[in-house]
Each structure stands twice: as structure tokens, then as C-alpha cells.
Amino acid sequence: MYDNFNDDLRYVIDLGIIKDINNDIVFANEIYGEIIPRVLNFQLQKNIREQGTTSWYIKSNGKLDMDKLLKAFQEFYSENSEVWLERFDYKEAGPHLLLMAFLQRVINGGGRINREMAVGTGRTDLLIEFNGDKFVLELKLKRMPSARQKGLDQISRYLDTLGMTKGYLILFEIKPSSIIPWETRVKWEDISHQNKKITVVEM
């Protein structure tokens, strides 16, 4: 019997595009890790117009205003995600790809996005470099009530590996807005966790 996900997964492992490391599915090398997300979200990038203008998010000192950028994405996501997510075969990858497309459109104007993706875990780590600054983003799907706590622990560990103390935890609700309306799911909170400053961004 054909298993769409497992057979596709086995195929790309055999091709050497991804690999299994301790039950985490990761890209086989940095080139694939950079190119594949770009290909997957290329059409999304093309359709992000005004909101993707780099200059909107640059402070007077030339630094990136990450808070403003992520708040703009919250608005964009609430207005567009349900239409866009229907276009993905694997819909749980959609929220991550939408955010990466949005970020790529903006960051292309002078920065770099480093991705650490583990297929099937519902999480992605992003390290964004822009004009001398670094920003850490942990992307996580809200599959379980424990997603927030696990996400906080995960981003804290990731920040430790980078020697940093500030990051953003991005939580995507997977239930439709008919169950959890946008008015209650879009949230922004600055908290302290394990001696780190974490901004929790929910949508």
C-alpha cells in the first residue's frame, strides 16, 4: 500500500537530499537547506508586495526592527493564511513556509537567514543576521497544550548554543479560526524564561 508521506520521505533520503539523524529528519547539507525552502515559498514571496518592503522595517540607524516585522506578519498571516495554506500538500509545513517567505522578502534587502529544520517535529529554528545584529526565532506548531512550554525550553537551549539571551518564539495555532477566532489567537508577550528574554508571538 502506498504511504504518501513515508514513501516520499524514503525517496528523498535515498536521493541524498535529506538524512535521518537520531530520528530527526534534516537537510543533508547547507545548500539543500537554503535552496529547498526558497523553492517551496517562491510563489509566496512573489505575492507578498507592500508588506515585504524592506525599508518599512529599518530603523533610523539602519538596524532591523524585528518587533515591527513580526507584528506586520501577524497581520498578514491573519488576513491571508487560510487561503494560502489550502495550497500546500503538507499543510502543517505551510505556516513555517509562509513566515520564511515573508522574512526572505524583507531580509533579502540586506541580511541572511540561517535555517535549522527538523522535518516532522513541528519546529524550525531560524537565525537571522542583518546589519551586524542577530535574531533567533523558534517556529512551532501548537499541536498540544504543552507546545508553548516546550517551545520556551527549546529556544532557551538554542540560545545557549549561540551564546545569546534574547529570542522570539513563534507559535502557530493549527485549529481553524472557526474554532479559535483570530481575535483571541493573535497574541504578543514578553517574558523571562531560564534567564532569557523571550518574546512569544502567537497567531
Rank of each mutant, 00 (worst) to 15 (best):
M66T: 03
F130P: 02
S60A: 13
R157V: 07
G94N: 07
M144V: 13
I107N: 07
F102I: 04
V106P: 01
A28G: 09
A28R: 15
E129C: 00
N41W: 01
N114S: 14
L64T: 00
K134V: 06
L137H: 00
E129Q: 11
K140S: 08
Q74Y: 10
P95R: 09
N47I: 10
I48S: 09
M100C: 00
T53P: 02
V106N: 03
R143W: 14
S60G: 05
Q149L: 14
Q149A: 14
K91N: 02
S55F: 11
L44C: 03
Q74S: 11
G62L: 09
H96S: 15
F42W: 06
R157C: 04
V26H: 09
Y57D: 08
P95T: 13
Y158L: 03
G120P: 04
L98D: 01
G122W: 03
G109C: 04
L137S: 01
F76A: 09
T124K: 00
G120H: 00
L64S: 02
K140H: 05
R123H: 09
A118W: 00
I107C: 03
D160V: 04
I107L: 10
P37V: 01
L85M: 14
D133V: 04
Y57L: 11
I58K: 07
P145S: 10
S146K: 12
F130R: 01
V83R: 15
V39E: 07
W84H: 07
K68M: 11
N131C: 05
H96M: 12
Y57R: 06
A93T: 10
N114E: 08
V26D: 05
Y90S: 12
T121F: 05
